[in-house]
Nucleic acid binder design. Structure first.
Length: 456
RNA sequence: GCGGCUAUCGUCCAAUGGUAGGACAUCGGUUUGUGGUACCGAGAACCUGGGUUCAAUUCCCAGUAGUCGCCCCA
């Protein structure tokens, strides 16, 4: 009976707790913890990025998570979903209208102008990594807080930059083990040729208005370019015969696109021209691209970007051609998991220290410090008393050697070195522990190498 | 922002209109100073609120969250 009472008490106690603060123990919608088990992937991604950006001449920049809301409205554009429905906007105590950044480029562009980077030798290449925020409906691979890595190049209008950037993206993904990717590229032209094109496109869709879906009928007035991106069957059919941006570029834009394709061919990068690719940020000009994974049928892109030659000027800087792209890091993690890419293994200890008795515990603390000073990663379970328990733990950790100090060894200033594979053990003096362990580890490594060689 | 599906120990999965069982994991034990296997044991859960009912974890509704599709994007 007492058992029943305790259970009941627990239940009521818990209920009270929940009533007080029901959502205290829950991440808020669309936000997630990155637990230790997943950190391996994140470490790998960060390591690859840190290694890659300097190789291509990029410099790291960090900008605030919070900016004036208008910065994003001005750069991304009113009427886009990112601005109209997905922005985390709020007022500060000082009544400033601010927003959590929905992407990284706007802040970087702002920093470029604010700090007068235009006087620096061009091109200026900036790398940024951090969380961005979009108030969207969450699902797998799509979070309200997610991480992006951004590469932006300012001050060079040549299409060779576009190509190099795509190559950089390819190289990063490849280093992560993500090889089955395809670049979707398109050119949406500059502001001049786009105006002409939009007129033509609107005229075309107007003539086929009846065959369009509801939302697309609305888009005809707000943003006809987006109809090309509609997934509805009937709209896709109409879109197939629609005039394509690529065919209606001005001379300058056409040359630019042609050059880009030549460079991509030269680099032998896996790309297809996707005339339907539009992208939802208004600042893009000329080149736009997305990176799709082909490992399964999903259409979720791993990243994307494009040229934004007008953005800096539009924000009040001097006319500056620019191009950039962002990678969705959460999606990279998903992709790495899906293809079971080798993650960065956390270094696992090869040595375990077991102790028995108070004096031995003191000695083993010192021994642990000694191992650490010698760069030998060591595990312990000092909190446990019994040797059996400690060896069990050592075994679970998969260590190669366990160092045992008992009462006797503590008094003699010796240590038992136990080979966990053969089970054999020997007693050595404290001074000889480190060299002996190092020697044994070397031998182990040799045998592992030999085994691997044999397999090959 | 719209529509569908889902919600049980830390994890994965059961059962049930009368408050729940297993597996894995965790912790402890199988006599005192020796691991791996085996055996025994312990702790640990019905998302929240409302309704129907004598009684709801179970049925209904709402909320919340996750997931899928759309929209959009990374």
């Amino acid at each position: 009976m007492p058992r029943k009472t305790t259970k009941k008490n627990k239940v009521t106690a818990k209920k009270t707790k929940v009533v007080v603060e029901p959502l205290l123990l829950q991440t808020i919608r669309g936000m997630k913890d990155v637990l230790p088990g997943e950190q391996l992937y994140w470490n790998k991604i960060r390591a690859v990025l840190d290694k890659s950006y300097p190789k291509y001449g990029f410099q790291r920049i960090d900008t605030p998570l919070v900016e004036y809301a208008n910065l994003f409205v001005r750069s991304i554009g009113e009427g886009t979903d990112v601005i109209d429905k997905e922005m985390y906007k709020f007022s500060t105590k000082g009544r400033d209208r601010v927003a959590l950044r929905p992407e990284l480029t706007a802040g970087i562009a702002r920093a470029y102008i604010q700090h007068g980077m235009n006087i620096l030798p061009k091109p200026i290449k900036l790398f940024c990594i951090g969380p961005v925020y979009r108030y969207d409906r969450p699902q797998e691979g799509r979070y309200r807080e997610h991480w992006q890595a951004n590469f932006d190049i300012f001050g060079e209008k040549d299409a060779v930059m576009d190509a190099q950037l795509i190559q950089l993206a390819h190289s990063v993904l490849s280093s992560l083990g993500i090889k089955n990717v395809q670049f979707q590229v398109n050119s949406i032209g500059c502001s001049e040729c786009r105006e002409n094109y939009l007129d033509m496109l609107t005229a075309y869709f107007e003539s086929k208005k009846r065959k369009l879906c509801k939302t697309c009928k609305a888009r005809l007035k707000t943003n006809p370019l987006r109809i090309l991106d509609c997934k509805e069957d009937k709209c896709v059919q109409v879109s197939t015969n629609a005039p394509q941006t690529v065919d209606h570029l001005c001379n300058d834009c056409r040359d630019h696109f042609k050059n880009l394709l030549e460079y991509l061919d030269e680099l032998n990068l896996p790309y297809v021209i996707n005339p339907q690719l539009v992208r939802g940020l208004d600042y893009y000009t000329k080149t736009v691209f997305e990176i799709w994974s082909l490992s399964d049928g999903s259409k979720k892109s791993l990243g994307g970007g494009g040229r934004y030659d007008g953005l800096i000027k539009n924000l009040g800087g001097e006319e500056t051609p620019a191009i950039g792209f962002g990678l969705g890091l959460d999606r990279l993690v998903l992709e790495m998991k899906r293809i079971k890419a080798k993650s960065y293994e956390a270094p696992s200890p090869k040595i375990f220290i077991a102790q028995l008795g108070n004096l031995a515990k003191k000695k083993s603390l010192n021994l642990f410090a000694k191992m650490e000073r010698n760069g030998i990663l060591t595990a312990e379970s000092f909190g446990r008393g019994s040797l059996k328990k400690q060896l069990r733990t050592a075994n679970k950790l998969g260590v190669l050697i366990t160092l045992i100090i008992g009462q006797k060894e503590a008094l003699d200033d010796t240590v038992i070195i136990k080979n966990m594979i053969t089970g054999t053990q020997e007693v050595v003096t404290q001074e000889k522990v480190v060299p002996s362990v190092k020697k044994m580890l070397k031998m182990k490594q040799m045998t592992i190498i030999k085994k691997k060689a044999k397999k090959k």
